[in-house]
Computed example of a mutant assay.
Amino acid sequence: MTRIPASRIVAAIGAAVLVAALAACASSSPSSSSSSSGSSGYVTSGKLTIGTGQPAYFPWVIDDTPQSGKGFESAVAYAVADKLGFAKKDVVWVRSTFDQAIAPGDKDFDFNLQQFSITDERKADVDFSSPYYETTQTVITIKGSKAENAKSISDLKTLLVGAQTGTTSFDAIEKQIKPAAGAQAFNSNDDAKLALQSGTIDALVVDLPTAFYLTGAELDGGKIIGQLPKQTGTGDQFGLVLAKGSPLTTKVTAAVDALRTDGTLDKLATTWLASSADAPVLK
Rank of each mutant, 00 (worst) to 15 (best):
S32D: 13
F109R: 00
A77V: 03
T158L: 09
V61T: 15
T253G: 04
A21D: 10
S68F: 03
S32A: 15
P30S: 08
L248E: 03
Q231M: 11
K88Y: 09
A15Q: 02
S275C: 05
L242K: 02
V92L: 02
A274R: 08
A181Q: 13
L160P: 01
D125E: 10
L228V: 12
K146Y: 07
G235S: 06
A81G: 14
A87L: 11
L196K: 02
A254W: 04
T158W: 00
G144K: 02
G263R: 13
S130C: 09
D202Q: 06
Y132I: 03
K151M: 06
G38T: 14
T135H: 03
E121W: 03
D278T: 14
A87N: 14
V139Y: 02
D82F: 00
S34A: 15
I173L: 01
A101I: 00
G105Q: 07
K88H: 13
T136A: 06
D191F: 05
T141P: 03
A217L: 09
K143C: 10
A26G: 12
R260T: 13
D236G: 10
D155C: 06
T253D: 06
L214K: 02
S198Y: 07
L113P: 01
A15P: 00
Y133L: 12
G41I: 01
N189Y: 04
A183C: 04
L242W: 05
S31T: 14
D191W: 01
I50G: 05
V76P: 12
S68K: 08
T271I: 09
S27D: 10
G182M: 07
L265V: 05
T158F: 03
L22C: 14
S117V: 00
I140M: 07
S96T: 14
L268T: 01
D207S: 05
A258L: 06
G69R: 05
I118L: 11
S27R: 08
N149K: 14
L159H: 03
A195P: 02
K83P: 12
L84F: 06
S45D: 15
G263Q: 11
D171W: 01
A124H: 08
T49W: 11
A12V: 06
